[in-house]
Design a protein around this nucleic acid. Sequence first.
DNA 1: GATGTTGCCTGACAAATGTCAGGGAGCGGC
DNA 2: GCCGCTCCCTGACATTTGTCAGGCAACATC
Lengths: 223, 223
Amino acid sequence: MAGERKGGGAELAEAVVDGVQDAGLVAARRDQICQAALELFLEKGFAATTIRDICARSGVNQASIYDYVANKNDILRRLLNRLWFRTDVPTLPERLDACADAPLEELVTGYLRELWDSKRQGILLSYRAVPHLRDEDRRALHEREKRMMEDLAAHLRHRAGLAADDPRAEVVSNLIIFLTAFAPMRDWLNKDVDSEVLLRTVARSIAAIVGGLAADPPTAAPA
Amino acid sequence: MAGERKGGGAELAEAVVDGVQDAGLVAARRDQICQAALELFLEKGFAATTIRDICARSGVNQASIYDYVANKNDILRRLLNRLWFRTDVPTLPERLDACADAPLEELVTGYLRELWDSKRQGILLSYRAVPHLRDEDRRALHEREKRMMEDLAAHLRHRAGLAADDPRAEVVSNLIIFLTAFAPMRDWLNKDVDSEVLLRTVARSIAAIVGGLAADPPTAAPA
DNA sequence: GATGTTGCCTGACAAATGTCAGGGAGCGGC
DNA sequence: GCCGCTCCCTGACATTTGTCAGGCAACATC
């Protein structure tokens, strides 16, 4: 009962499972299950991970697991709600809303620092698990992504002084969001680079992109 | 027999399967199989695609398929060899070797145009299928990626006049290679943007990043 | 100590999956 | 008309998978 200790606004509808009464126990077991599942999903992928794997690693019995989650897809949903849809980490557009005229590079640096620190796994999961989501869930995820892109595009238009119909705002916005996944997805290639250098280099790159956008006229087709 | 019509230097060792003699037939059937498998892998993911799915879509019998490929992983290998390891599309470092002093933005534009035109699916596959590769295959893929990053980093050092020990060369190089996957991975978000605009915006962004790298001193830690 | 209640687990089921053995169809050559 | 060869496919195998039914242990309550 009383308020389900959700980390942040859950956007994916979690199945109702009521085999077990004790709410605290349910929460604890779900933590075990999600933690184990997360590790396995990132190691082997969603489809290659079996319920038996998850049970083995989490220590929950193969039968009992169905007292806490409805099925494998439900685990994925719950993971995304915890890791990807958490609202305690403001998005980049939200940060831009809050600090309307702070220098972009600084804002981005702060954003990436927090993001890569606390949502690393959520980023990886959200990129890799898409094909395995139920349709409704995938739609929710895509809508959130689209909304974020549009919000960011509006800010870019303002900051770089672009025309309302300049499509580059959307492209660059999409691109920046993509770059947001850079460190989690590619840090195996920069293992020996100081993470602060990595962070600042990416932030500066993003600032350079936006700067270039402001300086250049819309791209014309070549002769 | 005589030279196996490989599109480019195959880097992943394909299993030897010799149920059927007629080399032309084998090649044709493999084409059917690979084409169907590619579609399915991109739609549903590798692990969620069954051999039966592939057979159904390609029209090859469930038993006969083992006369042409060794197993599901072998199909993936063959696909990556065709799509990702093909050598008829020069890499970005190779292009930089060839045109040592052409403007970067133009080079990148040409590169992306060809890449996104002919290796789209290879890019998607190589990003999504990694967890399902056999260890040797994954190692080969990672080594290629690392080599490419280092080659590109060397060029960046030269072009942007960076010190030999400036780690930002590797970071930016890694980042550019990552951006190379941008359109294939994210174009569902820019569906209504002209693809030429998208291309040029990304190329210009990459140029802006490198330009910023040249202009700025190495990032110092803040006070 | 008897009795409910709550959570856990042994054991199993049907379905799906990767893989193939072995027979058969088609066809060219004698 | 028969033989031998090449390729195809019906049918099946062992295994793995997701999912549970139904019984058991622990514990609190009376």
